[in-house]
Design a protein around this nucleic acid. Structure first.
Lengths: 342, 342
DNA sequence: TTGAAAGCGCTAACAT
DNA sequence: ATGTTAGCGCTTTCAA
């Protein structure tokens, strides 16, 4: 592949001149500029961004670290980020941790070695210790949507008010008349609750309404479609099944809708389902899914502007936590009165 | 960030020695090796892959060019590729064309400038002319799932038997007893038909069964959920609506299921729906979606092995086209006999 | 077993 | 307006 030296030789000038022409810097006579451009074109010249990166000490790349690109929520975030970053002259390395912290650490190290200019990290597969080690090496990391129980995030973080989100869901269901509400939460029994805040917010409102959590009504999942389906099956098989289900993400909610269909239930008449995330698919489920919307554009917009400030060495001001928004669709309705016809 | 020179100075050796220790090449005494490793650790050394890439003339990165990461089909492909590539020591640049050929060309140029070792390209947003220009500059490109009417693909290509896929769908619906079948096809009226082969295969079988295509029963979409929904609404609003709908991808099929729900239809009793792609969500729609499965693992596996051969300069042997697989689920059933119940 | 030196493709300060 | 030169961080002959 042609280099600036090839062009220089062909045009009878030095590499410096070519560099100046190509970058538009320096002052070059119109004649040589024309000639250089001509040969660049002819030789099919493509600037070598690797060489440029080496000298400029910047790669114009950023890393996005997410658990799973196949979770539509993250795919949407990835697309928005890719777009915004590209518009700002940056390419994006999208990397999946598969919720594996060892792998996540490896990914972060690799991104560091590739000298990305910055990283945007979403929770799941990233240990706080790994974040610390990145900071120690001066790597710029912006966290988004952290929901850990230990709130410390070390790096600058774009927050979302998950607690209020959970509360909104509970209130919506209570106001619709539901009293027996099944919960499908991402977490491990007696272990870490990944969706800790959404869960807490919901619990809190239920408790205030005098509805303690019946253990049977709490089922654990891992954010996948399958886990949502299985959890819903367990709920629907209870002697006294819930009249509504809140799954802490949309994928599990979709799994729950599927389980309900398999049980022959008609939604929302026989069962209400609520999700969380408002993925693009949410308005297109049958019935359309009531869920909590996270403004992904605002999220990424904030994350990028914080990261850009950091890259440019400017002082950063973190935005206020993003507010949740309840999207009421047709997957929720008042419960059927006892003995209501089929 | 520490360089090998920093380590060298600290350990009292030259950069060459450090390089040898770090790469495991050359022969170094155990003592100096220890010392070097020690200091590397202490200084938090991370190899600079940019510098290495410049000298080695390889970046260990590959580019994936797809229309839309938010289409789950491509997200699944991206995940599989990222995994496989990473296992082979390669990072992946995922890039979206948004079906825009000008943008696609820009992306390809950018990937070339970043000196990716190779590119895996899926159709939508990539003009053949752009592919030619890549080839001209010696960039290695492997195409996957091309479905253009002009079959020439220039670059090595992993094919899928879309035609048979379309035929399988048509036969399945015919065998179930459907005669009035609505089609939702990705394409432009009187313009390019993106899902040309799936469409042709289906048409062909219908024609053989003596069922000519009624213009009203053909609706165009753009692979999105929304377009599938709108197209289905038009079909269901016909004076004599179809008893089955074939959408040429799963997203449009999901949109169609949604439209049917909005119309108060019960699937599959009142309407059968078939998709194409078998995305992870397909078994979880309500009802689960009958669709054509594309073996994404096999696809990416082939694409990667072809690309790796090309990178290593080995002769490539293209695999036979991948075979479609009909996944019959609960979204299809025999049509209701005329006048059957409510 | 280790070091000296050249060079990957480019940029940029400093000449001329 | 253009050329000289040094150097980004690393690898890799070739010598010692």
């Amino acid at each position: 592949m042609a280099t600036i030296y090839d062009i220089a030789k062909a045009a009878g000038v030095t590499a410096t001149t070519v560099s100046y022409v190509l970058s538009g810097k320096g002052s070059i006579s119109a004649a040589t500029r024309e000639r250089v451009l001509q040969y660049a074109q002819e030789l099919g010249y493509r600037p070598n961004l690797i060489a440029r990166s080496l000298i400029k000490q910047e790669t114009h790349t950023i890393g996005l670290v997410i658990p799973h690109i196949t979770n539509p929520f993250y795919a949407e975030i990835a697309e928005i980020l890719e777009r915004r970053a590209y518009a700002a002259g940056f390419r994006t390395f999208i990397t999946n941790t598969y919720e594996d912290e060892r792998f996540g650490k490896e990914l972060l190290d690799d991104l560091a070695s590739r000298r990305v200019d910055g990283i945007i990290a979403l929770p799941g597969g990233i240990a706080l210790q790994a974040l610390e080690s990145m900071n120690a090496s001066g790597l710029l990391v912006v966290c988004c949507l952290w929901e850990e129980e230990e709130k410390q995030t070390i790096s600058p973080s774009i927050e979302f008010d998950f607690l209020t989100g959970g509360q909104l869901v509970a209130r919506h269901l209570l106001e619709s008349g539901h009293r027996r509400i099944g919960l499908i939460v991402d977490g491990i029994p007696d272990g870490r609750v990944d969706h800790h805040l959404r869960f807490s917010g919901c619990l809190q409102v239920l408790a205030e309404a005098g509805i303690p959590l019946e253990p049977d009504l709490l089922q654990w999942g891992d954010s996948s479609l399958q886990s949502g389906k299985l959890a819903a099956e367990r709920l629907l098989a209870l002697p006294e099944p819930p009249t509504a289900i809140f799954a802490t993400n949309d994928q599990m909610a979709i799994g729950a809708i599927n389980a309900a269909w398999q049980c022959g239930l008609a939604l929302p008449r026989d069962l209400s389902v609520v999700g969380f995330d408002d993925i693009l698919m949410a308005p297109f489920t049958a019935p359309p899914l009531t869920t909590i919307s996270i403004d992904k554009d605002a999220l990424i917009s904030s994350a990028m502007s914080v990261l850009m400030s950091m890259i440019e060495g400017k002082p950063v001001t973190l935005p206020a936590p993003l507010a949740p928004n309840l999207m009421v669709r047709e997957s929720t309705a008042p419960p059927r009165a006892r003995g209501d016809g089929p």
